[in-house]
Design a protein around this nucleic acid. Structure first.
Ligand SMILES: [Mn+2]
Ligand SMILES: [Mn+2]
Ligand SMILES: [Mn+2]
Ligand SMILES: [Mn+2]
Lengths: 219, 219
DNA sequence: GGTGTTTTTTAGATGAATCTAAATTTTTTA
DNA sequence: TAAAAAATTTAGATTCATCTAAAAAACACC
């Protein structure tokens, strides 16, 4: 069913899904995410509305319909399965998978999706710890506690890094801060909110922007 | 460099490559292969000419330039590596690989190409026995003797099947006639040109259309 | 070698996705 | 609460790949 949608429509639906975790998405936000003009967004929203993939009232923002949500989840499943496959089967690093998956997600068949899912053992999480929607559109639990909010002296495990910025991911890699790494919060800078964390013998300073994007399980 | 070409341009270049084994390709032939109108071909040829990918004189057919040939070989490399990868790594049958590779060939990165080539051990032939162009644009030898031309009583090995017609490939599979299968030519029907071949204990009749598309090595 | 057939090209239109500039509506703020 | 600012939509244009119909060129055959 996704097959009849153009790549562009798929991209809009995916972005709208990401922007509507809390309330409707604005034209400008969508435009910014997709690097297109606001006028382009308005015109695409009109088309998606006619296809009943979104609900939209002029000047009032846009939200996905149930059908639209299913489309978004399917694309997200493709994306995350691809990321994991590139990582596990082809040896891509976690900072390299996003760009490739971003292109391929629109072009693989259901057959391909099913086969890589099977090879991977029907996984629930991608290389960044993001949940992979199931074939029937259910979303596995998402780890949502931020390292930024951890307490001093608390030991935590990194379970998700919600950034596709390759340089941030490489920085974490260089400090040995991979998924499922255990660390302890040593200090918090009251002004900047930066944290100093203890990882084995190493002490690493992580600024607020980074700790906001690292999600953890408390031990 | 292929990256700046649209998918449509890539498809034209690939088809022109396939049609120019002997002399220039005609507008109509290209149109037929791509299922577009002759007028569309003329207009695309004009664009490809401006990009110096083809040489074209009005009403006189079209041929690839050196640059165009390199583009075609790169796409062909993507296609055939993908076919082999789908077959070997993901368990697709040889009659299923073509359609999937046809879509993906335009969307994989050089990184992806290099990684699957490496996983496959830098292969020279795809699941149909077609040669895979090297990264620098050389073409491994192509088996070109047809089963149709084999002599009675001759033993031969199937080395290439130049058809992407899934039903023909499945028919061959059902008779156990896979790549690298040895068989003996038992009879030739003088009228139709059909062959009866002996494969182990089985005798199989193959009509002319099929034997024209099976390429062999003589033993 | 002229004339009819086939092939190719040109002309002009369409739909998709985009843009800029202008108009309209909503929100903010003084 | 009215004016200014910001967000959104409308209007109209552009680019790409396609189409159909008509014109032009090449070919084929008597
Ligand atoms: Mn799918
Ligand atoms: Mn991810
Ligand atoms: Mn390539
Ligand atoms: Mn092949």
């Amino acid at each position: 069913m996704t097959r009849t949608l153009t790549q562009s429509m798929q991209d809009y639906v995916k972005v709208i899904y990401g922007l509507t975790r809390s309330g409707p998405a604005s034209t400008n936000d969508i435009a910014r995410k997709l690097s297109v003009s606001a006028a382009s967004v308005t015109s695409m929203i009109k088309k998606l509305h006619e296809l009943k993939l979104v609900r939209h009232t002029s000047y009032r923002g846009v939200a996905l319909s149930h059908a639209g949500t299913m489309v978004a989840l399917e694309i997200l499943r493709h994306h995350r399965l691809l990321e994991l496959y590139l990582n596990e089967a082809l040896g891509y690093a976690w900072d390299e998978v996003h760009a490739e998956a971003e292109k391929l997600e629109h072009h693989i068949s259901e057959e391909f999706e099913d086969r890589i899912a099977k090879v991977l053992g029907d996984p629930s999480y991608d290389p960044h710890g993001d949940p992979i929607p199931t074939k029937d559109g259910r979303m596995p639990p998402t780890v949502s506690e931020r390292l930024a909010d951890a307490n001093i002296n608390e030991s935590v495990v990194i379970r998700r890094v919600s950034s596709h910025d390759a340089s941030m991911l490489r920085m974490l890699t260089s400090h040995g801060l991979l998924l499922n790494t255990t660390l302890r919060v040593a200090l918090r800078d009251a002004d900047s909110g930066a944290l100093v964390v203890q990882h084995g013998k190493r002490r690493i300073t992580l600024d607020r922007e980074i700790t906001e994007n690292i999600f953890i399980e408390r031990l």
